[in-house]
Every structure is written in C-alpha cells, then in structure tokens.
Design a protein around this nucleic acid. Structure first.
Lengths: 231, 231
DNA sequence: CATGGACAACTGCTATAGCAGTTGGCAATC
DNA sequence: GATTGCCAACTGCTATAGCAGTTGTCCATG
C-alpha cells in the first residue's frame, strides 16, 4: 500500500468527482428528469434549485441552458423554466435522431479509426461474445455502452460526441429493459457489432453508416421505442 | 404612416435586437469565427472579451459554452479557451452530420407537416422557380434558407432545431459560392426540393429522409465541401 | 357579481467581486 | 549554462447583489 503522502498526491486524479458544479448540476438534473422524479410541467426556479443543491445560481443556470439545448426543459425568457414532456412520440423522435447521428459517427470512425482503437473495439466484442453466451444482460449492456463510446471517440468530432452524449440520456432507462425483454435478439446485436467493426476495417464509411443506423433502429424497435415500421 | 406614439409602442416587437446579451455575444462570436476574423488557435479570455464587447463576463461565458458545444472553441478548465481549427476535413465532417440531421428533420416533417406548413413550403418553391429561371442566386439562396427553416419548424423538435441552427453556421460562408459556382446545378436543386414536398404530402418519412439526405450531400459536393465520393 | 388596475412576489438575466487552479518567466542554486 | 523552485499574472469558475420584465392576487370600482 502506498504511503499517506502519495495517496494525497494522487488523490485529485483518481476520483471522477473533480467536475465543475455546473456539470454536476447538469447530470443530476438530467438523471432526475429521465427517471421521472421531475414530472413534465414542473416549474424550475434557478434560485430555488440552487438553494436545494446548496450551490450558487450561476452553475444551475448553466445546467438549465444545456438541458434546454437537449430539449429537456423549456424556458421562457423572464418568465420561467419548466421540464418538457416527452411521451412515447418524443422518445421515438430522439431515437431516430440518435440513429442518424450514430450513423455519422460510424462513418467517421470508418475513415479514422486506427489499429489501437480497433483493438479496443475487438476487446469489447470479446466481452460481448462471452456475455451473450452467458445471457448476462447487465454485463452486455455495459460492454455495449463502452463499444459505442469507442466509436464516438474514434469519430473525433466534438459536436458529435456532445450530441450523442446528450441523446444517450433519453433511452438510458429503457436500454436494459430492451435487452432483457428480448433475449433472443442478443445474437443479432452481437452479429451487427461484429459487422460494424468489419466495415471499419474495410474503411467503408457508407457501409459502416448504414450498418450502424440499421443496428440502432432495430435495437430501438426491439425495445419498443419505435414502432415496427415498414422497413 | 403610424404616429410616433404607436411607433414607440410597437418598437420592442419589430426589431430583432431584443435578444439577450448572451445570445448576441454568441452570434457575434460565431460569425466572427466563421468569417475567419478569429484565426484558429487564438486565445479567448472571458474577461477580455467582455471588456471588448462592453458587457459583463457572464453572458460571454455562456456564449463560449455554446460555442464549445458547437465545436467551434476548445476550453481547458482553469486554463484557457482557444478557437478550434476547422480545415476542409472538419467542414466535410460537419456537412455529413448536417445531412444526417436534415434527413431526420425531413422524416419528422413528413409525419407532421400540416396543410398550412405545406402551403408555406409551396410558396417558397414558387419563389425558387422564379429565381431559378432568372438565375438570381442571391434570392434563391434566401428562399432556400427559408425553405429549410420551414422543414425544421415542421419537424417540431427542439433538439433538432437547435442542432441544425448551429450546424448551419458552418457552411454559411460557402453556401452562396456553391450556388454561384455551378449555375447548371440550380435546376437539380429545384427538382429535389419539389420531390421533397411530394414526399411530405405522401407522408412517407423514409422517402423524405433519403431525398433530403441525398439533396444536402449533393449540394455539399457541388460546393466542393465534400469530395466526389463513390455514391 | 363581474372587471379592471395596481402592487407585491416572483421569474430569468446581468453586473461585480473574489476564489482556486494554471502558466510563464525570473532568480537562485547546482 | 542548465535546472529547479517560486511568485506574480493570468485563466476559468463560483458567489452575491441587484436589475428588469412577468405573473398572480387582492382591492377598488363599475
């Protein structure tokens, strides 16, 4: 075990709680809305919320602006801010948008992913194979998130990364449910992921984009977020 | 002409300068970056910029955060903010992303656009026909922007609207050039727009999405933003 | 009882001040 | 001369105070 001195030295880097108050408020609020703890139409006051969180009004305001950009709250200038309502329709919308952006990310990843990135994807694929064989949905979901995060990183576009991170929050609470509800769909998802990496290795952006897009859309349909459309 | 009294009364609503300082700072900075007045790598100080603009530091900070989300600046916590560099590669990236999102907007518009919205689109189509016949590229560009804005509005998604507004800034400075450089492409764009509205009327989201996507991609290729890919 | 208007209690928005890291250069030391 | 430590001048970030609209309630008036 390291000494107390080195522990103190390395402390700032080890924890992930080194984020700004605004970032923390954003995540906390976002999760609260996604989990349904803050019902649609609920009025949110910058001052009141700041008092609740024990911080100043500025970070809260910054968080609210980001949430507004994400479409999770509506703020009327000089009047008030309320949490937006997203029923099944809205979730379906965001799902389709996410499919489109994931496709773009895949296209960029196909152009730029280097060997190191591809190796990391392979590692996640290996985990997915094991988890799929064992029907370990929890572990599979985690590997799935890491895999997509790798694709986003490989795309190397700040706007894309930010947008996809925001969108991910929307279906976070029904992702696991989607996987659990249809255990026979798991092999399909695995095959799609593998096909995706193959497209990356072939440096074929068009193919990667279409495959990723189809994968996300099918996943959403399996989870009931999207209706079983014609195609 | 109305009296001075009524002029005074309607003054606040007529102008578009009733936006917040943060919004104004955002647009001003964004345009400055797009126009190249702020070279890539230039250090931006919240305080210094606030002093230059004659406002406080908070609105400036808010503007910078939005620009960061747009991928136009990079800010390292506690260190500094610099304007990001976007060469041809970056512009091509943003173009492809925009094509994907425009496609999503078209799909949603196909599902929801009511008769009033479709009528407004028809009106813009009429303007485009005249402008195309007269080869009036300036008027055509304006009608083009209004048309796309109508589609975005018909989509009725806050996240989408915000994202597309941000992305639009990227190719603003080479939009007119694109239209001027290839005058023979104008009829193509017009036909594509008309086909788009037809897809809306058929309530075919898939078709609308694909057509919009192809339209934007072709437009970008014509403008030289995207290379002449295989498809 | 219905109605209009003023006032008080909000709201988001902005300004100012100060905190806490980061950085670059200068001086002391090896 | 090269290197290391330190200090001042930055930086972004947060807290507090106050401005300027908006909104709802309550009272006076028709």
């Amino acid at each position: 075990m390291a000494s107390a001195a080195t522990d103190l030295i390395f402390r700032p880097t080890e924890g992930q709680d080194a984020l700004s108050l605004a970032e923390g408020a954003y995540r906390r609020l976002r999760d609260a809305i996604v989990r349904g703890e803050l019902a649609a139409g609920t009025k949110i006051s910058e001052r009141g919320l700041a008092l609740t969180l024990g911080i100043s009004a500025q970070p809260v305001r910054e968080a609210l602006r980001r949430l507004e950009a994400d479409g999770m709250v509506l703020t009327q200038p000089r009047s008030g801010t309320i949490v937006a309502e997203f029923g099944p329709d809205r979730l379906a919308e965001m799902g389709r948008i996410r499919a489109a952006l994931e496709g773009s990310a895949a296209a960029l990843a196909a152009e730029r992913a280097d060997d190191a990135a591809l190796a990391l994807m392979d590692a996640q694929l290996a985990v997915m194979r094991e988890a799929t064989a064992a029907a370990d949905t929890v572990r599979l979901a985690a590997a799935n998130e890491r895999f997509h995060a790798l694709v986003h990183a490989a795309a190397g576009n700040a706007f894309l990364l930010r947008s996809l991170t925001s969108l991910r929050a929307y279906d976070h609470f029904n992702r696991v449910r989607a996987l659990e509800s249809t255990p026979k769909e798991l092999p399909k998802a695995l095959a799609e992921h593998e096909g995706l990496v193959k497209a990356f290795r072939k440096r074929d952006p068009e193919l990667a984009e279409e495959r990723m897009r189809a994968h996300v859309l099918r996943s959403l349909r399996a989870g009931g977020v999207l209706k079983n459309g014609k195609k």
